Simulated assay, not measured.
Amino acid sequence: MGGTRRGRETGTLGKLMALLDLVALADHPMRFTDILSFSNQPRGTLHRQLSHLVEEGLLEIDRDGRYLPGIRLLSLASRSWERNEFRAVAEPHLSLLHTQTGETVHLGVLRGAEVIYLDKVEGRQSVRMYSQIGNASPAYCTGVGKAALSMLDDIGLEARLAGLKFHAYTEHTHRDVADLLADIAAIRTRGYAFDREEHESGICCVAAPIHSDDGNMLAGVSVTGPAYRVTSEKLQEWAPLVRAAAASIMQDMHSRLGPKR
Rank of each mutant, 00 (worst) to 15 (best):
G65D: 12
R66F: 08
Y67D: 05
Y67F: 15
L68S: 02
P69H: 08
I71M: 12
I71F: 05
L73N: 04
L74N: 13
S75W: 02
L76S: 04
A77C: 03
S78T: 12
S80L: 14
S80K: 06
F86C: 03
R87A: 15
A88V: 07
V89Y: 09
A90F: 11
E91N: 05
L96I: 03
G102E: 10
V105Y: 03
V105M: 05
G108H: 04
V109E: 12
R111N: 09
A113S: 14
E114C: 03
I116D: 07
Y117A: 03
D119W: 01
V121E: 00
E122H: 01
G123Y: 01
R124S: 08
Q125H: 14
S131A: 15
Q132L: 14
Q132V: 13
A136T: 11
S137Y: 03
P138N: 10
A139Q: 06
Y140P: 11
Y140T: 11
C141F: 03
C141D: 11
G145K: 09
G145Y: 11
A147N: 08
A148D: 09
D154Q: 10
I155R: 15
G156K: 11
R160W: 00
L164N: 04
H172A: 14
H172S: 11
T173Y: 01
T173R: 02
H174M: 11
R175V: 08
R175W: 05
A178W: 03
L180Q: 06
L180F: 12
L180P: 09
I184D: 03
I187C: 04
Y192K: 01
A193R: 01
A193N: 04
F194Q: 02
D195E: 15
E198I: 00
E200Q: 15
E200A: 09
G202I: 01
G202M: 01
G202H: 00
I203C: 04
I203V: 15
C204A: 10
C204K: 09
A207Q: 02
A208Y: 08
